[in-house]
């Protein structure tokens, strides 16, 4: 199976042949939007107070650290958390060389609660992500309970975790728990058209198939679309897309925007009808789940869990031959 970005480029070429040219890569971005930061991820090979060495897909990267580089490892951690073998997500400084932030062994579990014990949960993360056994330490449980009051099987949960040899260990809540059962989601009216720009919340998901991209809730399950059969349609009127389709994602909190390919079906995200309150309350609806690299590259903080988003799916126009036509932001 070709990689999503290669498949996306080929599909875009074929689409343009039959329906007309797509806009320039930068078209459709909000005015004055900053470009994404070139975030990186990889396995830590070595670390010193001034240098971080990563193995990123077989390539050795040597990145300079400074005194103001912050490290997250289940909370504020120091350089001691940068142990060889751990996974790191690195965000460079916006204005110059060097590393701004490093997240070490960041993980996330979002899905339907299957079983709930005093110190561990069993969570169904959707058909392609499987199940997760999450350990809940007592200090994390207090924080999680504040935003997840319904710890009963059938309700949705979303927790930021840190990886451990025994599996993910909860650190803090990802977002506030939706008040309905996972299968009681009320979708939009059937006749409601999909808006050109979707507004809601963008979150991130762990262990993506490729480093950069997004999981989108309405991926077509027919043909080679790549979607999950039987996935809910979400609480926002989404247009159907396929693996390889592109979405322009704008982080309203940081002002950064970029085009992101769809790399996975976001059928777990489709069940969440929640908001992000990072910079004002967003409208309800989890519009995209981004890979950690893409999320931090757009200015998000993994421990915050979400940012308020404007997303414009790159869909061909209905009637005319031109592709990707749509209103400006």
């Amino acid at each position: 199976m070709p990689l999503p970005h290669r498949r996306g480029a080929r599909r875009r070429r074929l689409r343009e042949a039959v329906l007309g040219a797509s806009p320039e890569p930068g078209a459709g971005l909000p005015e004055n939007a900053a470009r994404p930061l070139g975030a990186l991820s990889g396995t830590i090979l070595d670390a010193s107070p001034h240098l971080l060495v990563l193995n990123a897909d077989g390539a050795e990267l040597r990145l300079a650290m400074s005194g103001d580089t912050t490290v997250w490892h289940g909370g504020r951690g120091g350089p001691a958390a940068l142990r060889p073998g751990r996974e790191a997500i690195v965000r460079p400084k916006a204005g110059g060389p060097g590393i701004d932030r490093i997240w070490v062994d960041a993980d996330r579990v979002a899905g339907t609660l299957l079983a709930c014990g005093r110190d561990a949960w069993e969570v169904d993360m959707g058909p392609h992500r499987g199940r997760a056994h999450v350990a809940i330490p007592p200090h994390a449980l207090q924080q999680v309970l504040v935003r997840h009051p319904r710890l009963e099987p059938g309700y949705l949960v979303d927790v930021i975790c840190v990886r451990s040899p025994g599996g993910p260990q909860a650190v803090r809540p990802g977002t506030s728990q939706p008040g309905y059962r996972a299968d009681d989601l009320a979708g939009p009216e059937a006749a409601e058209p999909a808006p050109a720009v979707l507004r809601g919340t963008a979150t991130w998901f762990a262990r993506p198939p490729v480093p950069r991209g997004a999981a989108y809730p309405a991926v077509d399950p027919e043909g080679d679309g790549g979607g999950c059969a039987g996935a809910p349609s979400g609480c926002v009127a989404f247009p159907f897309l396929s693996i390889g389709s592109e979405i322009t994602v704008h982080n309203e909190c940081s002002g950064r925007a970029g085009r992101v390919p769809v790399v996975e079906c976001g059928c777990a995200a489709a069940r969440f009808c929640d908001r992000c309150v990072e910079c004002g309350a967003s409208p309800r609806g989890r519009i995209v789940e981004l890979t950690p690299e893409t999320f931090v590259g757009l200015g998000g903080d993994l421990e915050a869990g979400c940012f308020n988003v404007l997303a414009r799916p790159d869909v061909p126009a209905v009637g005319s031959g031109g592709a990707g036509e749509g209103p400006s932001w």
Binding site: L14, R15, V18, L19, E222, G223, G225, S242, P316, V318
Partner: peptide
């Protein structure tokens, strides 16, 4: 058998291998 079938918005695309005057081509239907 189509080479690829996918959907974007209001269009589903179906791609078949084709041959025109001896040259290998692909025909894309939207």
């Amino acid at each position: 058998v189509p080479l690829d079938v996918w959907r974007e918005g209001c269009w589903r695309f179906v791609v078949y291998p084709a041959s025109v005057e001896g040259r290998d081509q692909e025909v894309v239907f939207a």
